[in-house]
Design a protein around this nucleic acid. Structure first.
Lengths: 103, 103
DNA sequence: TTGACAAATAGACGTTTGTCTATATAATAA
DNA sequence: TTATTATATAGACAAACGTCTATTTGTCAA
């Protein structure tokens, strides 16, 4: 997944999608479970999941009739790191991050 | 500035604004200079600067007729760090970041 | 005080986005 | 096969957004 800072920002720039991301951050959830937890219609949730998928922010596992989603934490960390390097290069936090990445 | 992850993401979720951010990341630029570098009309640039300002992403210095803008790198680093903690808590990059913040 | 310049604001307009209902696709069970 | 369930896709529609032109506000120089 080639990093595109605008695509990444657009993907997370919505309250509903951030709710979805929070729900499936550290576990696998089916679309139905996400619908229950977030509270929009199933097509709306599927629409948002497609946007997250196209940006590379979720991992997908199909199992019979169901599709499970889980947040792609590694890639999200990379995206945030890249944005810090691009837009906050002179901060100590970013300098430390760069040190960790390069070691 | 209270951190709002959706407001932050919306503010950086536009190509023109990211160009502006890149230009005034490590220096102070007047609105006129940003207009020249980014290449939209002055009202359009002012519009985007207002969005960045409302999200706390730029610092402002007025000087006579001119207004100078510079990216608020410290706050951008904080925002990225918060997003990592929220959406990528289990990654080693985030664990290192938390260590640095807490020390 | 007048004129010139820099930036912000107002308003118009086309595009993009988020949500919905309706429908299609795919997998399983009877 | 047929019915049922889970998810994705299509299309409609209102709201939000990005850009522009025109205008206003504020500062400085003559």
């Amino acid at each position: 997944m080639k990093f595109d800072p605008v695509l990444f920002a657009k993907a997370i720039a919505d309250e509903t999608r951030q709710k979805i991301m929070g729900e499936c951050c550290c576990c696998w959830l089916s679309v139905g479970e996400i619908v229950e937890k977030v509270g929009f219609t199933q097509p709306t949730i599927s629409h948002h999941l497609a946007i997250l998928r196209d940006a590379g922010l979720v991992k997908i596992r199909e199992e019979g009739k169901q599709t499970f989603y889980s947040l792609n934490q590694e890639y999200i960390a990379v995206c945030c790191g890249q944005i810090m390097i691009k837009f906050a290069p002179e901060t100590s936090v970013t300098e430390n991050l760069v040190k960790v990445i390069n070691q």
